[in-house]
Design a protein around this nucleic acid. Sequence first.
DNA 1: TAGATTGTTAATCGATTAACAATC
DNA 2: TAGATTGTTAATCGATTAACAATC
Lengths: 216, 216
Amino acid sequence: MGTELSEEERGGERLALGVAARLSRYLQVLTQARKMGKETISSQELSEYTHVNPTQIRRDLSGFGRFGKRGVGYNVDGLVTAIRDILRTAGQHNIGLFGAGNLGKAIASSDMFADHGFRVVALFDSDPAKVGEKVGPHEVRHADSLERAVVEDEIVVAVLAVPAAAAQPLADRLVDAGVRIIFNYSETLLQVPPEVTVHTSSPAVDLLYALYFYLT
Amino acid sequence: MGTELSEEERGGERLALGVAARLSRYLQVLTQARKMGKETISSQELSEYTHVNPTQIRRDLSGFGRFGKRGVGYNVDGLVTAIRDILRTAGQHNIGLFGAGNLGKAIASSDMFADHGFRVVALFDSDPAKVGEKVGPHEVRHADSLERAVVEDEIVVAVLAVPAAAAQPLADRLVDAGVRIIFNYSETLLQVPPEVTVHTSSPAVDLLYALYFYLT
DNA sequence: TAGATTGTTAATCGATTAACAATC
DNA sequence: TAGATTGTTAATCGATTAACAATC
């Protein structure tokens, strides 16, 4: 009962891939809904925003507890807390962002990470002209100081928003410095040792896929 | 045999959601691989870059034809052509991009759309100071001219990279102008009539989800 | 009470994986 | 021939959906 999770419900088992993906998606919508002052949300509404079947949503959530009120819906605040608890992402991980170009600045200025409890602790660029520039709350540092920063700022995740040519050499240095998770927004296929995970993405990877359905 | 697809294999049935998502992902990697001069790729290699099981990849592809060579792998060029054929995305659709801020500029300057055969035909902003500015191959137009541009340039997809406060009014105008597909990169939940599809995304929506797995 | 929406069941469908013969 | 990798089968697991009683 209630919104507390037993050790077994949240601790033991790893979530199935699909469940974790959907929970993240719910969380994104819930965070936005909360900003807009919404206090309650139904599985039907969540479905409209996420394109996930409402039954599926109720099923996903009921696996972890009874978060809803019949006839009313889910409390937005409560559900945000609950899903964060389930995903165990509570802001204890530091991110280093590389590249202060358009994409890098867009990411650095967005509330996205802060909203979800992650901290961008450093923004790097290799262009001396950009070093010292203020971008959102960050001051651009030179990429030369990367190795020290990884250790001192306890950076566990590197986000790459650099030109294609710069990506591989940068990845090599990051790997040597001890970074084990790289988010690659550049248009390159990165070669890394097996213990390092690369996640390649781009602002519109899913555009192509989504258009297949929308355009028919 | 060969790489030609029968009408039934590509025309009749709609692809399952998962298949289309994965094919798009393969296509993205293949496009990058081709740029890097790779001529052949194995399901094992594709798996490393996409995190999709190699058997799954072979299964996905073999449903549409025999594209590979045993003992060798897949021809990169041939597979790009084949998947484009399957997804039926061959550049006949025009995109209007709204917002010439950091994210808008990043999207406008990227090869992404061109790589996949889509055309960004117009870039808009409501800030007069930005109108006329050159961004990649585009010149920023004032958002006032949106209605005419939608008709004249046959814009079917609108990509929104604008501040949260501007998103809903803009979406309303786009809907009135006849746009039926909106890609929303702003941090707002958009209200639109049922015949319009909204796809909400952000440069790191999947970061949250991916981190759940990588950080454990 | 009446209306709405959750939580849950049951049944179906598609995704995933291991294994291996076919063949380049 | 030897090695590598596809194409395909079979078996399992998770996702999806409709339906509806429980209950706010």
